[in-house]
Design a protein around this nucleic acid. Sequence first.
RNA 1: GGCCCCGUAGCUCAGUGGAUAGAGCGACUGCUUUCUAAGCAGUUGGCCGCACGUUCGAAUCGUGCCGGGGUCACCA
Length: 589
Amino acid sequence: MQLSNSILQVIAKFLNDKSGVETDFGLSLAPTRKEFEGDVTLVVFPVAGKLKTSPENIANEIGNFLISEHTSLVTAFNVIKGFLNLTFNEGALISQGLSTQTQLKLENPKTIVVEFSSPNTNKPLHLGHIRNILLGWSVSEILKANGHNVHRVQVVNDRGIHICKSMIAWLKFGNNENPDSSGLKGDKLVGKYYVAYDKAYKAEVEKLVESGVEKEVAEKTAPIFNEAQQMLRDWEDKKPETIALWQKMNAWVYAGFETTYKSLSVSFDKNYYESNTYLLGKKIVEEGLSKDIFYKKEDGSVWIDLTEDGLDHKILLRSDGTSVYITQDIGTAIERFHDFAMDGMIYTVGNEQDYHFRVLFLILKKLGYAWADACYHLSYGMVDLPSGKMKSREGTVVDADDLMAEVIESAKAKTLELREMENPESTDAVELFNKIGLGALKYYILKVDPKKRMIFNPEESIDLHGNTGPFIQYTYARIKALIRRADAENIEWKNAIDNKPSLHPLEHELLFNISRFTDVLEEAGNAYSPALLANYTFELAQLFNKFYHELSIFNAPNERDFRLVIANKTAEIISTALHLLGIKCPEAM
RNA sequence: GGCCCCGUAGCUCAGUGGAUAGAGCGACUGCUUUCUAAGCAGUUGGCCGCACGUUCGAAUCGUGCCGGGGUCACCA
C-alpha cells in the first residue's frame, strides 16, 4: 500500500545516509500482529546485522527519526525485541483507506490469453470442470483488475475415436431421439449415448470371450468398435452424412454447455475446436527439424531430446506422419499468438498434466518464442468427495447442472427458514436464491489454494455460516441496508471526513484492512490465486461485523456520517472482491 | 523405480524466513426494548508427518526418510 511504501522509502534513505553507502537492507513492512500496538512492523534484525548495532538501538533510532521528521506518515512507535511497530498517521490512513482503488492501472499492461474449461463433447460438465471454470474465470478477472488485457478461450475436444463412439451408438440405438423429443439437455443426451456405446461394447466383448476368443482379440474385433473406427475414417474422409451427424450432435452438446456456462455466469471470447487445430503443429515440426531442435528416427517419427533439461525424449510426430497431443498444443499456442498478439498465456488444466506443460513450454522456448517464458500452467488439484475419488464407473461423478440446482434449492430452503417471504417464486426471489446458492458453491471451491487437492463436502458447500460466501454476501447486504437508510434520511454523509475527531480502534483497523485490498489484488494476480482474495474478503467481512456489532452508527450523531463512509467503502471492496471470484452480491438478504 | 505435488486442531482449510501457529465447522456457554442473530463474544481443541542441517530466528529454506496422490503412450 502507498503509505507503507512511503515509509519504506523514508527508512531506506535514512539508513543509507547513516551508513554512508547504498545498501540493500531488504526492508519490508508486514501487518503488525494483533496483540501488539501498531499498524505495520519492520523486522530490524537484518538491519542491525548489517550496521553492527543492536536491534533495539537501531529500531529506536528509526522510530524516533520517523516521529520527529515524518509525522505525516507515522505518529507512534514501539520496540519489542527486534520488532519496530509503527502506527500510521490517522489522516494519512483515512485518506488512503477511502481512496483505495479497485481497478489498477499498469504502465505496461500485458495481453494475456486464459484458457479454461476445455470440455470433451462426450461428457457433460461435472464438479471437476466447475473447479476448473471457476479458477480460470476468477484468475482472468483478477488479471483484468490488475490492469492487463485478458482474452478468455476454451478449446473443445470435438474429434477422435471417442466422439465416433457416441455417434455410432446414437445411430444404432437412438431412434432419432433429440434434445426436444427427449427433454434432455444436449450434452446429457450425447453423454447418454457415449455410455450406451460402452455398455454395448462390453457386452459384445464378453460374448466373444464366451465363444472362446482371447480377450485382447475380442476387444479389438468387437463389431461396434469396428463400426466406430470406420466412422472415424469416414469423418477424416469428410463423408457428408458422417460430417452432418457429427455437426448435428455437436450442436446439441454446445447448446447444453452454453446453458451450464450461463448458469455459472461465465463466457469466452473465442472457442477453439480440435477438429480445426489438430493439424496445426505439423508445419512447426518441419521448422524444428531444419533448426535441429527435433530429430527424425528411421521409422519416420519425429522426436525431441529433452534429457539435458532433466526430462525425457518426447514424440512429436508418429511414424505414420500424424500428430500427437503436444504437437497440436504447439500449433494452437502459435495460432493464439497470431490471434491476440499475446504476451503470455495461462492454461487452466488439472495437475495430472504438469509434465505435459513443462515439456510444452520448454519446446516453445527452444523454438524461440519470446512469450514462452510468460506461459503458465494454472495447475489445480483434483476434487474428491468425502467418500473418495469421483468415479464415472461407479456413478459418483457430481454433475455440474445437478449440483447448481441443489445449492440453489438449498439456499431457498434455508432462506425461507430464516425469514418469511411474500412470494418465493417471484423473479427477485429466484435471483436471490441463485446468488446465495452459487455464492456458497463458488466461494467454497475458490477459497482453497488451487494447487491443493480438495475435498468437496456437499453439506459444507451449502453452508451459510462462518467462512462462506453467504456470510460475506450478508455483510454486504447489511451495509447496503445502512446506506439505504442514510439516503432515506437525506444525510449528506459524503462530506463527513473533515469533521472526524479521532479514530476508534475498530475504525482504524477497518481502514487499514480496506487499504490492504490493492496489495492482495496484486498478490492474487502474481500468484494466480483467487484463494488469497477469498480469504482476505472473509477477514474483512469478519472485521466489519465486529465493527457493526460494537459501534453504533445511527445512535452516534457525531460519528454517524464518518462511519457510513467507512461502511460504504467496505461494501465497495467486498462487492469488488466477490465479483473477482465470480460471485454476485444481493442488495438485501 | 525416476520425476512432480501434497502432509498444520476431531473435520475442512489459512498461514510461502520473524513475535505466544490462526479461521471456519463440530461440541459447550453467553449476547437481541439498540442500525439485518446468515451476526458478535467466549470455552474446548496442535510433538505444524519424522529426523538432521542452514539461520540471530524455520510450519515456511536444504537433505534424507515415512505416508497420500499424480505422472513417466506412436492416448488426449
